[in-house]
Amino acid sequence: MAASKAAIRYATAYMDLAIEMKSIEKVYADVQMLDSLCYDSREFMAFLDSPIIQKRKKNTVYDAMFQGKVEKMTLEFLKLITKNSRENLLPEITESFISQYKKHKGIVVVNLKSAVALEDKVKKAIVAKVNEHFKGDVELNESVDQSLIGGFIVSVEDKQIDASIKSQLANLKNILLN
C-alpha cells in the first residue's frame, strides 16, 4: 500500500520525535505492534474507521488497550492522530514509519520471489550480489510464486531483476509476434 502524504508526514514527525527523545527502538517496537494489530484485527480497523465512536471514547479505549504496554509517547501519538481525525491512516503511518526506520538504520530490504523455495546457498549468493551494489544490512523477504514457472525476481528499492521463466517466455512471445 502506498502511503498518503499525510501519513508520511505523521510518520516522519513521529520518527523525528522518537530520535530526539532517544526512544527510537522502543517506539519502533510499538509501531511494529500497532502495524500487526492493524493488519490482523478487522475489529480494531473498524473501531478506527468508525465515525460513530466519539474521539473521547476512542482515547479511553486506547488507554485501556495500551497504557503500560507502549511508550507514553506512542499513546499520546494515537490520541493526537485521533484528535486530528486521522486515526484511519494508522496502517499507512505505521508502514511509512517502519520504512523510514529501516532507511535510518541502513537496512536494505530485498524482496525475493521464486517459483520454488530456494536453497540457502542460492539465497546467500543473491544477498552477496545485493551487498556489492547497496550499502547496509540486508533484510531478505522471501515468497514462492509457482506462476513464475522457474527462476526468480529480486526487488530492491526501485530496482528489479526478473530472471523468471515466465518473463522469458513472455519476451519470446513478443519477439515472435512482432
Rank of each mutant, 00 (worst) to 15 (best):
V27Q: 12
Y28C: 14
A29S: 15
D30L: 12
D30E: 13
Q32E: 14
Q32I: 02
M33H: 09
M33C: 05
L34Y: 04
L34E: 04
L34K: 02
L34I: 07
S36K: 15
L37R: 13
L37D: 12
L37F: 15
C38Q: 10
C38P: 07
Y39F: 14
Y39Q: 13
Y39G: 14
Y39R: 14
Y39T: 13
D40G: 12
D40V: 05
S41C: 11
S41T: 13
R42E: 15
E43Y: 07
E43I: 11
F44N: 03
F44I: 08
M45W: 09
M45C: 13
M45N: 09
A46S: 11
A46V: 02
A46H: 07
A46F: 03
F47C: 05
F47L: 12
F47P: 04
L48A: 04
L48E: 02
L48Y: 04
L48D: 03
D49F: 03
S50V: 03
S50E: 06
S50L: 07
P51I: 00
I52F: 10
I52S: 05
I52E: 03
I52T: 09
I53K: 01
Q54P: 00
Q54V: 08
Q54S: 13
Q54F: 04
K55N: 11
R56Q: 10
R56V: 07
R56F: 00
K58V: 01
K58R: 06
N59G: 13
T60M: 09
T60W: 01
V61S: 01
V61N: 01
V61T: 08
Y62Q: 06
Y62W: 08
Y62E: 04
Y62S: 04
Y62V: 05
D63Q: 10
D63R: 11
A64M: 09
M65E: 01
M65I: 14
M65S: 05
F66W: 08
Q67R: 10
Q67G: 00
Q67I: 02
Q67Y: 06
Q67W: 01
K69I: 07
V70P: 02
E71I: 01
E71C: 06
E71S: 09
E71H: 08
K72C: 01
K72H: 07
M73T: 14
M73K: 09
T74S: 13
T74L: 06
